[in-house]
Amino acid sequence: MRQSCPTRPLSAIPMPFQNIDRQDCFIVQQERHLGQDIMQAAALWNAHGPDLFLHRGTIEILETELRTFLPAGTQALADDALNLACRYQRLSGTAEIRFRLEKVRHDSCRRFHVDHVPLRLLCTYTGPGVQWKHADSEIIHDTPACWITLLKGRLYPGWSTKGAVLHRSPPISDLPVPVTRLLLTLDHPDACGMG
């Protein structure tokens, strides 16, 4: 069993994620290039894992629940997702997390929007990542697979529309070859969809 994540001491939050506390910062992204073991595990999850793993709890509870659903050869994916959950817990300061690992094969969330949460962490393991833009701009930014995206939601303390960042799932239904996105979403435990 992994060690419990520490609560939110600022020194435990690595750059660039500390920047999310700035009033003028609505999105932080971290470039990542994952190893072959994680990419192979993600492909195996797409082939043999559940379409949706959605649970709420502490890191320890999430690890226990996730372990019961792991297809053979996907431990590296689970370890990476749980490490991201630890990072999210340090950033959010919440004891529990809503953990959602989902296969997306269609256009979900086509409209640019801001979530009704304090903070949301996204990582797309396979397929195209989240698209985002500033509220006052038409320039759309595409996020590469495996990058970490941290977004402020409407419930973040002091959030305002000035400088806000909107995001959406990338359209994939019109692609010439079918794509399955494997998307990890980490949220506040009371985020919508937990009912």
Rank of each mutant, 00 (worst) to 15 (best):
P128N: 12
L184S: 01
P50V: 10
A41D: 06
S160K: 10
L183H: 04
F17Y: 15
S92K: 03
P144Y: 00
I59L: 07
D187N: 15
D37W: 09
W159A: 12
A164V: 14
T180S: 02
H33S: 10
D142T: 09
R56E: 03
D37K: 05
H116V: 04
H167N: 08
P71W: 00
P16E: 02
H141W: 02
H55K: 14
L186E: 13
F17K: 03
A135Q: 06
P144W: 08
T149E: 09
K152Y: 11
L91S: 12
P176D: 14
P16F: 03
H55I: 02
Q131Y: 02
T149C: 13
A41R: 08
L34F: 06
A164S: 12
L91P: 11
H113F: 05
L82E: 06
L44D: 08
I59S: 00
S160N: 12
W159F: 14
T7G: 10
L70Q: 04
I97Y: 08
I148K: 14
L54N: 15
P170F: 00
K152E: 02
G127A: 01
P157F: 08
T94H: 15
I27Y: 11
A81K: 03
N46P: 03
C192L: 15
D37P: 08
V28K: 05
D142L: 00
A164C: 15
L34H: 09
P118D: 10
L10E: 07
G93M: 00
R111K: 14
I140C: 06
A47S: 12
E138T: 10
M194Q: 11
C146T: 14
R56D: 00
N46R: 11
P157I: 07
A191C: 03
F26H: 15
R110S: 12
L186W: 08
Q36P: 08
E63S: 15
P128M: 06
V165A: 12
A81H: 04
C109S: 03
E138I: 10
P171L: 05
G73C: 06
N83G: 01
A164D: 13
I20E: 05
L166K: 14
I140H: 07
G35K: 13
T185C: 03
R32W: 11
G35S: 13
A12N: 13
L119A: 04
L70C: 03
T58V: 06
C146M: 04
I139S: 10
T149G: 04
G57K: 05
R154T: 13
M1C: 11
D80Q: 04
K162V: 12
M15R: 11
P14M: 03
R32Q: 15
Q18E: 10
K103T: 04
